[in-house]
């Protein structure tokens, strides 16, 4: 593989969708230029960012004249394009399994956890802004899907029924995730892969949010294998490297998590 230019990654806090390509780059040992986009200030919908990514979504990566979005697809690009340890299993059936679990996280587990979290935290934090300014900022969002989502989160428009269904699904998904970890260390058997990076960005917060989110999904009693898996994840140096790029605080002591003891 020929030498390649340094990619530029536009990201918010190193979790959720932004955390996926960030951790993949770190695991791969790829240097990248980090550009922090403050989602709560709606930086992703400002003209200077829209000139780079017209969809106004984060994360996005530019590399060799190309714009890449969709965090999971970016991770596969990172693994395919750069030298470094392989982050995808070589066996076709294992690679299939990696992709299946990434979709399950992207389109089921994460959006449900995220709906609960936005309703409780993200929405109220943004809601303090001047109402006229807020409206203008929402109107500036290019994708209709994202406009609807932001409107719902900011004004607290999720129905009780929707929120209850999301809670139920997080409970279901966390149980399935736990069942899958039976007998092996990583999501796809004994090979660490992009699926683990993907899921970590969503699952890490759940044990810490159990009470505030009224969502007892991931804890040492209900999901011991998931807790052991999280500990293995926290032991990876990539987490420290990437979380150092946080502007706020991830609110979690990495060393304590990496050395957590279970009764």
């Amino acid at each position: 593989m020929k030498m390649t230019e340094k990619p530029v990654l536009y990201h918010w806090e190193p979790n959720a969708n932004s955390g996926k390509p960030m951790l993949a780059l770190a695991e791969k040992g790829v240097e990248f230029t980090s550009v922090y986009i403050d989602m709560l200030e709606f930086d992703q919908h400002k003209p200077e960012y829209l000139a780079i990514n017209p969809m106004g979504t984060i994360p996005a990566m530019t590399h060799e004249g190309h714009l890449l979005n969709e965090s999971t697809a970016i991770m596969e690009y990172v693994d395919a394009r750069f030298e470094g340890p392989s982050l995808r299993p070589s066996d076709p059936a294992e690679r299939w399994k990696m992709r299946w679990w990434m979709k399950y996280c992207d389109q089921y587990y994460a959006p449900c956890a995220s709906m609960v979290a936005w309703d409780l935290f993200t929405g109220p934090r943004v809601r303090d802004k001047d109402p006229e300014e807020l409206k203008a900022r929402i109107d500036a969002i290019p994708l209709e899907e994202r406009r609807i989502a932001w409107r719902k989160a900011i004004y607290g428009l999720f129905s009780e029924e929707e929120l209850a269904e999301s809670r139920r699904r997080v409970m279901e998904a966390s149980a399935l995730f736990e069942a899958n970890l039976e007998g092996h260390d990583w999501i796809v058997g004994n090979t660490f892969s992009l699926a683990d990076i993907n899921a970590f960005n969503l699952v890490y917060i759940l044990p810490h949010m159990a009470e505030t989110m009224k969502l007892p999904s991931v804890d040492p009693v209900r999901t011991p294998r998931t807790m052991e898996w999280l500990r293995r994840m926290y032991q990876r140096p990539s987490i420290k490297t990437i979380w150092a790029l946080s502007r706020g605080s991830m609110g979690i002591d990495i060393d304590a998590e990496a050395n957590r003891e279970f009764a």
Binding site: E64, H66, L68, E70, T72, A73, I74, E76, Y77, A80, R81, P92, A93, R95, W96, R99, W100, K103
Partner: peptide, 27 residues
């Protein structure tokens, strides 16, 4: 993912681009 599996397991004739950017577009 079954389609991608088939192209991983039986690479000929190739039904995905050879380059990483083309594969990103596909995904």
């Amino acid at each position: 993912f079954i389609l991608e599996y088939l192209d991983d397991a039986c690479p000929e004739p190739a039904l995905r681009p050879d380059d990483a950017y083309g594969q990103w577009r596909l995904q």
